[in-house]
Design a protein around this nucleic acid. Structure first.
Length: 327
DNA sequence: GGCGTCAAGGCGTGGC
DNA sequence: GCCACGCCTTGACGCC
């Protein structure tokens, strides 16, 4: 690189980005001044324009002016005129110059192309091809970058999804456990009631109310869990399918994967199956649900800030005596 | 010799 | 029809 004035750390591109002169010779002169002088190309082995070097006469281009001055001109002269069919790489200085030009503007106007070719001692077509290839490389890098970004996003979402699955499984297991416990207690209660009082047959749901009134959260506050009060097993099944079925509309909100818990403040979790309710029963149920004080509304507390406790309802799992999902 | 990089070839396409 | 461009491929070259 004898005689070169290359500034590897040059901020040339920054300087040029503030100017709008992609075709001007001033820009090229500026590029020369900041990158290298024409003599930098003296060792070029690039494919060069034979047509512009008629009879070996050196043209007025800087590239060839530099060659004239070189002591070992003959060797380089032979080297830079390739045999037909051979491909020669551009020199580092030529590439640097083109790179800086590319940073200024990645599109190549005809005037600019000719000017660059003249300054670099290349054919205009070579400059055009270089820009085309450079754009292709830029696009490839951009795609790789985008891929990396998307993959990171995908991995993050996948992790979230898997943790949600785990949490879902855990909650299902808890519900299953609690349901078994409830059924067992129910049977025990029935047996004891049959023995103690014949009137007890008329109030089969007394025990669950007791259970509700006796439910106490971890922090000592009473928690009302009314859903199971009048919910028959069949209703529980339908409610489950309505609430947790991943195919149901409640779960198809891509922005709110947790939206399946929304029915907490309404009775529409029971809507799918009305066959076992009379109108009066349904009205009573709605009324009781609406008037119960502590039915937790959970939709806002769910996944924006996942709780340490796997339960999102604001009280301990043990207090959630839902009976939606029989297993 | 395999592989990656890069200049260049070839072809299709769209704008004028 | 010409030209520039994008895309894919080819061939030369350098590195290991």
């Amino acid at each position: 690189m004898a005689g070169g004035k290359l500034h590897p750390g040059s901020n040339m591109s920054l300087l040029l980005q503030n100017e709008r002169l992609p075709c001007s010779s001033e820009v090229l002169e500026s590029l020369w001044a900041h990158t290298s002088n024409p003599a930098s190309f003296q060792g070029s082995k690039s494919v060069v324009d034979f047509e512009n070097v008629s009879g070996g006469r050196v043209t007025d281009r800087p590239f060839f002016q530099a060659l004239e001055k070189e002591e070992n001109f003959d060797e380089d002269y032979e080297g830079c005129f390739h045999q037909p069919g051979k491909k020669r790489r551009l020199t580092g200085e030529q590439v640097q110059f083109l790179e800086r030009s590319f940073e200024v503007e990645n599109k190549l106007e005809p005037e600019r192309k000719v000017q660059l070719a003249k300054e670099l001692g290349l054919q205009p077509r070579q400059v055009a091809i270089w820009f085309q290839n450079r754009r292709a490389r830029f696009k490839t890098k951009q795609l790789e970058k985008d891929y990396g970004t998307l993959k990171a996003s995908y991995d993050r979402l996948k992790g979230d999804y898997e943790s949600l699955l785990q949490e879902n499984d855990k909650l299902k297991a808890e519900v299953n456990s609690l349901e078994s416990k409830l059924i067992r207690r129910d049977k025990e209660k029935e047996n004891s009631d049959d023995k103690s009082s014949p009137d007890a047959v008329n109030s089969p749901h007394k025990e669950p109310m007791d259970l509700i009134s006796n439910s106490t959260s971890e922090n000592g506050t009473k928690v009302s869990l009314p859903i199971m009060v009048t919910c028959k097993q069949e209703d529980a099944n339908s409610a489950k399918s309505d609430v947790l079925d991943s195919d149901s509309p409640h779960c198809t909100d891509g922005n709110h994967p947790s939206s399946f818990v929304e029915p907490a403040d309404s009775s529409h979790a029971f809507e799918p199956d009305h066959s076992d309710f009379s109108q009066d029963e349904e009205d009573n149920l709605s009324e009781s649900l609406l008037t119960l004080p502590c039915l937790p509304k959970v939709e806002e507390a769910c996944y924006d800030d996942p709780p340490e406790n796997s339960c999102n309802f604001g009280f301990q799992v043990e207090d959630q005596t839902f009976c939606f999902w029989p297993y």
